[in-house]
Design a protein around this nucleic acid. Structure first.
Lengths: 343, 343
DNA sequence: TCAAACTTTTAGATGTGTTTAAATTGTTGA
DNA sequence: TCAACAATTTAAACACATCTAAAAGTTTGA
């Protein structure tokens, strides 16, 4: 590698000062057009590489934005990330990604690293049990935080997520309208704000329809295909014989459908299943999954915009912003089958 | 936010020089133990945040490693990334992730950004059509590159990928041994080194078994579930009536299986399908997918280690390192069905 | 022709941590 | 008591781009 090319290299070659070169490369109107051109040409000729860390030392803007979610392999987050990426790309921000796998410690490490790198802001789907202090850590050091998908009690920062109670109620009502009364809720945990909201949506819908709520119909579990797949055994051997399942998300629903098919029953005929999120694959699952779109793209885009707004001084609205979910009816749900006499 | 705490803040508070503080925080043996402790305590007390960009300006080591792949939403890459992440985490490197979606330009932008940030190295699954110069750009500026999953002609850097020809031959041979002779190859492109290798593996296996190769049995297409799903129509209406399909990867295979089920046929009975990669979901697909494990974890881990080795001066072996794939037989493949007389 | 008013360019301080050579302090042993 | 040596600490240069105040160069117009 040849000697490193820096501003002063260009300046010397052209007999100018580094001040002029710096201004020219950033298109300052202070520099004469002809000079600017000569400088830009020379920069390309020499293969000059802008040193952002030197620059950000002065400007205290690094162009780096951090994003932490539970698991980028989870398509729900992946869809949000894609929206964030395309929004940030547009304003030439680099984004640093990390999983926290619900480890508060891993998440804090990430925040600290980001602070060390001079991150301009952070978008996070907080790990279960995130203390407000970890959000404060970021904010107090001049790095604004935006929350997505989950809330943190006491953290007064912009938060974007789907209206879970409303969304799950949509799914539950859909099943009720098909005649189902014995409806299980499969997957997920009640330890997150999301979990409590979703359970509430399910319970409220049942109550409103005059159906008694049986806590035995709640099967918590991992929010993955594997989790849904494993829940099938449990689901099929429940004493209450549910005829339908409201699943925590599409992954769980697809896993559950697979498990049910393995047992020789047909989803969309014998048993109805709803998902949540409307991932790309919901539409091509077999049978095509009835689900609730949770506004991933919206959440990602809004979160990114809110952060960019904050960075540009216009104060984004703090507090909770709910995105309205939408029902997507497909083939995994069907009217309640009349139970044959030998049932 | 209070006045920013820096080395000199700590130094002043304790009546020491910044030199001592700097050395102490990095555990230099030059500093007396008692002094080091006082300094560390003070640093915590004041909420000192290490400024990596200032440091890296001197040291020219940023602790940042870049990773670019086609699409992190693709579980194949996601599994590799997970292995890379856990390996890099161990040596306290931050990693910056990006998709290139096979845009050479987006990929180059990423490399440039990484150079600006002073990235220590880059791991990439190169975009289709990546010119050697883009690899050189990184290397020439002191940022070593490691390739995964795909090769770039003329780039003499460590490259890790599965042995595609061998792996696809495994799958093809498996189908041949079950009596199939009319075997289609579904999904993917022949524009990448991987594509050519895989097609070669398929062709060679057929030839070796004395089966004539019919180019009409090659159905290229997107490497996604959607792609496989859409290929089903095409596949089922082929004049050559294939009885089995070797798919580009598990996603295509799962999509194809879904498409075939939709058409009322049963995979694993009427038609045999093999995948490639052995993603987590292959095992829980319905029917469980026969596939070839492509060593994602190995590839990720080896690539990360190779990079870390290079950064530590021990020169990692340049050139191609092949990981041996392994057959995983499940329920999506079955012996050739005798064709009924009315066929 | 020369002061006033621009337009360009630049000197030099700045941001923060690292590192080396040198200074300071402490200890040992003759 | 003092040279020699070891253990600590520090001054100051350095990494590279930014930015302000001031200097230098041009043009305008009376």
């Amino acid at each position: 590698m040849a000697q490193k090319v820096k501003l002063s290299t260009i300046a010397e070659e052209l007999g100018l000062s580094t001040a002029t070169v710096s201004l020219a490369l950033r298109d300052s109107p202070l520099v004469a057009d002809s000079t600017r051109e000569r400088i830009k040409e020379k920069a390309i000729e020499l293969g000059y590489i802008y040193n952002r860390r030197a620059a950000s030392l002065r400007t205290s803007r690094s162009g780096i934005i951090g994003v932490v979610v539970h698991d980028i392999m989870n398509p729900f987050y992946a869809e949000i990330l894609r929206a964030i990426e395309s929004e940030l790309d547009r304003s030439r921000q680099t984004f640093i990604l990390s999983n926290h796998y619900d480890s508060v410690e891993k998440q804090r490490n990430f925040i600290e690293t980001l602070l060390q790198l001079g991150g301009d802001g952070v978008i996070m789907s907080p790990a279960i049990g995130t203390p407000v202090n970890d959000i404060k850590l970021a904010e107090d050091n001049g790095m604004p935080a935006i929350l997505i998908a989950r809330q943190v009690a006491g953290a007064d920062v912009p938060t974007f997520r789907g209206d879970d109670a409303y969304g799950i109620a949509l799914a539950t009502n859909h099943l009720i309208s098909l005649g189902h009364r014995n409806i299980a809720m499969v997957g997920g945990t009640d330890q997150t704000s999301t979990g409590r909201e979703r359970y509430k949506g399910y319970v409220d819908a049942l109550k409103k329809a005059g159906i008694e709520v049986d806590p035995g119909l709640r099967i918590p579990g991992p929010r993955t295909k594997q989790g849904g797949f494993e829940a099938a055994v449990n689901f099929l051997s429940m004493p209450q014989k549910p005829t339908a399942a409201v699943c925590w998300n599409d992954l769980v629903a697809i896993g559950l459908m697979n498990g049910i098919s393995r047992a020789g029953l047909t989803v969309g005929v014998d048993i109805s299943v709803t998902g949540y999120d409307d991932l790309e694959e919901a539409a091509i699952a077999t049978p095509a999954l009835t689900t609730v779109y949770n506004g991933q793209a919206d959440v990602g885009r809004s979160a990114a915009r809110a952060l960019l707004d904050k960075l540009n001084g216009s104060s984004a609205a703090d507090g909770l912003h709910l995105v309205k979910p939408e029902m997507r009816i497909r083939q995994s749900t069907a009217p309640l089958k009349k139970v044959p006499a030998n049932g």
